[in-house]
């Protein structure tokens, strides 16, 4: 499954980049995120409650950040396990481009899901993933904007 989109955030590239690396911001923006612990500058552990169709489960996972090329790009890859509900793994490549006083955030994400999630949710998963990523970036944009204005 692949997800691609772009969103304009009315904040400078550096502000956006920093926010992407801020566990508090991420925790607030990731839909269903209950816990986000930073183990090192590039390693995070997350607990996220996800619902896809009839499957609802708590996923625990490790996310690794790739900060090479900052602040123009940002990479992340991760793997989450939801017990009986299945598992998911994937990654995203994010690029940031200046656009006047704002920043264009482009993301190119791919994900693989397995287990019950894949079986039951196969028809729903693309839509759900799109909805979730849209929710994330909307909230992210709002948070960054609020922070920038504050």
């Amino acid at each position: 499954m692949e997800l691609k989109d772009e969103i304009r955030i009315p904040a400078s590239k550096q502000v956006v980049y920093d926010a992407l690396n801020d566990p508090e911001v991420l925790k607030a923006c990731i839909p269903g995120c209950e816990e986000l612990i930073q183990h090192s500058p590039t390693e995070l552990e997350a607990k996220v409650v996800l619902k896809v169709g009839p499957v609802k489960a708590r996923f625990t996972g490790v996310v690794t950040l790739d900060q090479a090329g900052a602040p123009d790009r940002f990479g992340l890859s991760g793997e989450g396990k939801g017990g009986a509900a299945g598992f998911a793994k994937g990654g995203a490549e994010v690029t940031l481009t200046e656009d006047g006083d704002g920043t264009i955030l482009r993301y190119d994400a791919r994900a693989e899901v397995g287990g019950k999630l894949a079986q039951l949710g196969s028809r729903l998963i693309q839509g759900t993933a799109q909805k979730l990523s849209a929710a994330f970036f909307e909230k992210f944009a709002a948070t960054v904007t609020a922070d920038a204005e504050a």
């Binding site: 397995g114 894949a118 079986q119 196969s122």
Partner: peptide, 14 residues
């Protein structure tokens, strides 16, 4: 099945 061996038709929806 998909390439990962996920069973793609495990309900009567599929």
């Amino acid at each position: 099945y998909d390439d990962m061996g996920n069973h793609k038709s495990a309900t009567l929806m599929d």
